[in-house]
């Protein structure tokens, strides 16, 4: 039986509206940037399979569907997430300040051991930057998570960031006692054969 992947990781994008989450997702999954992107119809999630340390890892990356706009992310969004990209916009001070709020939001709703990473996006807009790289770095250190500046427009660091997050999740899994399950149990019923079948499940073998 031909397996197309060894592991399935569910990842989320979180951050204020307009910081470039959807663009980052499109850049990573399709290597494209459409600056006239008008999100009348959103993206549910995107899939990309990557190779890490000889293993095929299927990344299922969920977008907020615009529900962050009026502070209305559903608690259901966080279910089964194994990694979260926290995104702010280096040209928008408030989006940076709100990272703390988003971290609190994650603590309330996501699994305690979810891997996190902070991204300062739009780093191509050097002339209108208001948040320095150092401040981003400090914030990340304070929360003990990795940090990277990205540009969905130029593609800078987008791929590296996702690969890093995926690698951290994989390392965490490898460290774990194989007997431990990654959260949800095998006896859960999925009423579709779609991709949700792997959420939180870890190894799909």
């Amino acid at each position: 039986m031909a397996k197309t992947y060894d592991f399935l990781f569910k990842l989320l994008l979180i951050g204020d509206s307009g910081v470039g989450k959807t663009c980052i997702l499109v850049r990573f999954s399709e290597d494209a940037f459409n600056s006239t992107f008008i999100s009348t119809i959103g993206i549910d999630f995107k899939i990309r399979t990557v190779d890490i340390e000889g293993k095929k890892i299927k990344l299922q990356i969920w977008d907020t569907a615009g529900q962050e706009r009026f502070r209305t992310i559903t608690t259901a969004y966080y279910r089964g997430a194994m990694g979260i990209m926290l995104v702010y916009d280096v040209t928008n001070e408030k989006s940076f300040d709100n990272i703390r709020n988003w971290i609190r939001n994650i603590e309330e709703n996501a699994a305690a051991d979810v891997e996190k990473m902070i991204l300062g996006n739009k780093c191509d807009l050097e002339e209108s930057r208001v948040v320095s790289r150092e401040r981003g770095q400090l914030l990340a250190e304070e929360h003990q998570v990795k940090f990277m500046e990205t540009s969905a427009k130029s593609g800078q660091n987008v791929e590296t960031a996702f690969l890093n997050l995926a690698k951290d999740i994989k390392n965490k899994m490898d460290r774990r006692n194989p007997g431990d399950d990654m959260g949800t149990s095998q006896s859960n019923v999925h009423v579709t054969a779609g991709d949700s079948s792997g959420s939180g499940g870890g190894c799909a073998c």
């Binding site: 119809i41 959103g42 549910d44 569907a65 615009g66 209305t72 259901a76």
Partner: peptide
């Protein structure tokens, strides 16, 4: 609600 939002629905609590 998420499905609605994916198809452009605007949410405000």
């Amino acid at each position: 609600c998420r499905l609605c939002a994916v198809f452009g629905g605007v949410y405000c609590l």
